[in-house]
Design a protein around this nucleic acid. Sequence first.
DNA 1: TAACTTTAAATTGTCGACAATCGACTGGAC
DNA 2: GTCCAGTCGATTGTCGACAATTTAAAGTTA
Lengths: 234, 234
Amino acid sequence: MPLEFERPQALVESVQEALMNLIFSGELNAGERLNEAAIAQSLGVSRSPVREAIRSLAQTGLIVIHPNRGAFLRVFSDDEISEMYDFRCMLAREAGARAATRIGASDLARLSEIIDDIERITTAGSVREFFPLNIEFHRIIVVASGNRRLASSYFDIAREHRLYRQYCLQLAGQPEQRGLAHQQTSNQEHRLILAALQNQDAQAAGELLYQHDLSGQQRTGELRMAAAAKTSVA
Amino acid sequence: MPLEFERPQALVESVQEALMNLIFSGELNAGERLNEAAIAQSLGVSRSPVREAIRSLAQTGLIVIHPNRGAFLRVFSDDEISEMYDFRCMLAREAGARAATRIGASDLARLSEIIDDIERITTAGSVREFFPLNIEFHRIIVVASGNRRLASSYFDIAREHRLYRQYCLQLAGQPEQRGLAHQQTSNQEHRLILAALQNQDAQAAGELLYQHDLSGQQRTGELRMAAAAKTSVA
DNA sequence: TAACTTTAAATTGTCGACAATCGACTGGAC
DNA sequence: GTCCAGTCGATTGTCGACAATTTAAAGTTA
């Protein structure tokens, strides 16, 4: 009877989620320390679940723990970023190649919808709504690869990249503008990827996704440069 | 066994290490629960650091936490194993391709040494010493890929595979006779891999490493079959 | 003023105790 | 004998308190 009914009611899970929101809401600056007591108090819990949540998040690479000093929001070196992107592109290629021969009709339809949505909001001049749609687009493909381990790794590194992008935006002073042209070209690539998937062309799908993530690296690189210029001036 | 002396590093780290030893020493059966109080007492610490260590290890995939029920040694489904090996082979190929153009002379010399060592112990009929040498061989190559993120992922999944192999050995009744013949063929593949690396042939090195890890999957698969046969009879 | 010591506050690390929950056991009822 | 409700022991989840450590500040000396 009690067939594997997991109750995700554990307090640690809630705290972990709250921490993720805190991290990605931009309330914390890059490299900033996470004060256990303050977090515990603001969430209305004791420090124990907070500590466990932090320990768990540290394993994902969003947080770095310095013994006896605290947990800090991770900062990224240029080398790390370069290697992370290399790794991410590689995962994207493999995921795309596997998805090409496995993806179902409903997923393909959903991808097409997303492309249209992005097209619509881009012509409408919106920028904020692009990211969740973009993430969903890639999520579908990576999951369709059929390899949960591969998918998990891709999500992990994408999350880290998200933190890095936020880190750059903070340095640069939150411009975030001038994105519409990039959204357009990105969506053009989406169309090519979709076509390759529809044709079950593993080689093409993999290569297109590789290049797609690679251009993401270049865009983030420009952002990083802008941030560096800003901070060196200031 | 209690922790002998206080280290400068955090207590959690020590507990984590102790747990790893406990897991890979074979003292725990597959799927067995990790009793917090018992572990804490045997290590001479309170439950807090034990809980944090468990939470951290759970993130690596060696342990699964069921809320309100405890932490259990992970058991693997056939699907998971298949996907994990697929992922591992893919990482091996990419690592090999990258290492081919970056690996240094000292690493190449060390690889050659290891191959000779394996040759020696194999002709001497030894089995136990094969694994650490084999691990070291692959570690060198993966690190030489120059991508720490890729290396980290490879080590993670190799660790999980190690746990799985132990799991199969337990089911099969600890034969561990994996055969000198396998060691020999494996080392032959090592020689081919080394040659490709020396020639800086990225394509060949990647493909050879892919096939090398793939044959590892087949060997583990046989072990799994033997274990299944044994348990169904019993 | 600058560098070094000393002191104090803030924060993390660890612990034991209590509450909440689960699994096994008991004891009927049919 | 099987099923179900209730109980009990064992284990996990959470908390507040204390110890250990680090960081910041104050104080001292040249």
